[in-house]
Amino acid sequence: MEIFKKNDKLYHIIDHNYHLLPVLNRFGINLGFRDKTVEEICLEHNINTGFFMAIVNTYHNEEYFPRNELLTFSPLEIISYLRKTHSYYFSYTIPKLDDLLNRLIASSPSDFKGLQMVDVFYKKYKKELRQHIDHEEEKVFPYVINLVKTQQPDSEYTIRNFEEEHSNVEEKLNDLKHLLIKYITPDYDENICNDFLITLSLFEKDLEDHARIEDKILMPLTIEIENKLLK
């Protein structure tokens, strides 16, 4: 494991960890960047290099968490990134999981109860995730944006009113993985199942990273702003 630096070539970073590809897209960076360094590319795209590096490094290594540095970024910057990850989940990851699970069930010749149960479980999970993300998009983010822009404390709410646990959403995803890997004996297409599990695992990791940025950066940052305004 290494910590990437702004002088590293972006190619080198992606070569090291191709799971970072969607992260690049969230920043509006496209491929074909030749031998340019991170700093050069960020300059071109008008991206805060420090913020980009922090996101890339925390994503690359779940133990890396430069709290003090992350707390210097603007909540608006963070929200814009989080919103892009939300839309990535619903425009890409979830439809892909839907499709794979449907194909998986279709590949099973018998009317096997196990996969049907998994399907029910997955659908309930998806509903909860949708609610959770809607809550953030409709309540939490607008509240924070308003706070930053007006520099006026809200008369009714503080960010603590909106706080919601992430653990539930993550727990279920992990359970889904456990159920498939440990308790369901295949009579289905193995390759489709592998695809499903790999997509699921990547999604799980992405969500964890996402939750960490929300709970440990956006929350404390907002609380700090509130405290300052209320003084």
Binding site: K113, V118, F121, K172, N174, D175, H178, L179, Y183
Partner: peptide
């Protein structure tokens, strides 16, 4: 033992293992 935390996950486990009469 099962590695499953959520109630609905445990329910699926129980059904798969025929602990509940479906």
């Amino acid at each position: 033992k099962t590695g499953i935390k959520s109630i609905s996950g445990l329910t699926v486990y129980a059904i798969l293992n025929n602990l509940i009469d479906t």
